[in-house]
């Protein structure tokens, strides 16, 4: 089903590098200028989802809340009955506990049958902490992986995979910055899952590169890498496809709350697949990985054998 002929991936690596650089620059540019549309998990504040018995009148709800003294953003959510109300972090009193109660009271004064579907109210200190923790988690995951790969392969492989990961993370987060889709805790979880996934892909390619370094002695590094990518290509594509299938299922059937998560995964899988082919392997070439670097102990044995072979 998939291509069986040999593709010269590494020959086109300059184009890939330019493409990746472009993606990274655009992402970083957007992150620096527009930033992320952080959800209440990180900023503090309150989100209230309510359901009306009939189609909700957004303007009316907005007026009601303004009159009650709330600076609220009101938007429809999924269906015509469901409404999402966002309130910034409230100053002054112990609002985390009180704000949702007061908002519901104000809404019920107009329409008694408003149903509370969901409240997320996060105090300022929690938001700050989650933001810090999120960053730390990402760094910890990267560090753990760096160490593992350095032990299993070699430091340059480790660096190569981290470059690919950082590439994927920046582009995925950049996607959220450019589109302005709200970035909440579940999306952070998705980004961490992408780290795991993209790495999975990269490792499979690296594993084959290592194997081919040992096997294909008369071939130069670039060709070895090309062969490895080609040999693992159908696996890379099949796995990406099955994972995409389930993530699309999540996107379609998983409901509004999980939307952001599935979008992040979709972007991450596509980018992760691309990066394990191009970014990770290109960086190996740039860093000058050679087959000798991978097998110092084996080299000694070979010399011994050759010496033994001399009569």
């Amino acid at each position: 089903m998939f291509l069986k002929k040999h593709i010269n991936f590494m020959a086109k690596r300059k184009i890939a590098i330019v493409f990746s650089a472009f993606l990274i620059l655009v992402s970083l540019g957007s992150l620096l200028t527009r930033g992320l549309n952080l959800g209440v998990d990180f900023t503090g504040g309150t989100v209230i989802q309510v359901a009306y018995p009939k189609a909700a009148d957004i303007t009316n709800i907005r007026d009601t809340l303004t009159k009650a003294g709330f600076d609220a953003a009101v938007q429809p959510f999924g269906t015509a009955q469901d409404v999402l109300i966002r309130l910034p972090e409230q100053e002054g009193t112990n609002k985390v506990a009180e704000v949702s109660v007061n908002v519901l009271e104000a809404l019920r004064a107009v329409e008694p049958n408003v149903e509370m579907r969901r409240v997320e109210s996060v105090g300022p200190q929690i938001g700050d902490e989650l933001r810090d923790q999120g960053g730390i988690a990402m760094l910890l995951a990267l560090a753990g992986i760096l160490i593992y790969i350095a032990l299993r392969f070699e430091l340059r492989f480790s660096v190569g995979s981290i470059i690919a990961l950082v590439h994927d993370v920046i582009v995925t987060i950049g996607f959220f910055s450019i589109t302005g889709i709200e970035f909440d805790l579940t999306i952070l979880a998705a980004v961490l899952a992408i780290i795991g996934y993209s790495l999975n892909d990269t490792i499979v390619v690296f594993d084959r590169i290592r194997e081919n370094f040992l096997k294909l002695r008369k071939v130069n590094t670039e060709e070895s890498i090309d062969t490895s990518i080609n040999e693992t290509l159908s696996r890379t594509l099949v796995t990406s496809l099955t994972t995409l299938i389930v993530v699309i299922s999540l996107f379609i059937f998983g409901g509004e709350i999980i939307h952001g998560f599935s979008i992040a995964m979709l972007v991450g899988i596509v980018i992760g697949t691309y990066s394990s082919i191009y970014v990770a392997s290109s960086s190996l070439l740039v860093m000058g990985v050679t087959r000798e670097a991978l097998l110092p102990p084996a080299k000694d044995d070979e010399i011994d054998e050759e010496l033994d072979a001399i009569p």
């Binding site: 985390v96 149903e115 409240v119 929690i126 389930v246 999540l250 379609i252 998983g254 999980i258």
Partner: peptide, 28 residues
């Protein structure tokens, strides 16, 4: 004092189970 509140109404809970179940089954 409360520094974080997350409340899920019973109807949304039921919807979430449904959606979750469906996405597992169809994806599977």
């Amino acid at each position: 004092y409360i520094v974080e509140e997350r409340t899920i109404g019973p109807s949304l809970g039921a919807d979430n189970i449904n959606d979750g179940f469906n996405s597992v089954i169809y994806g599977f």
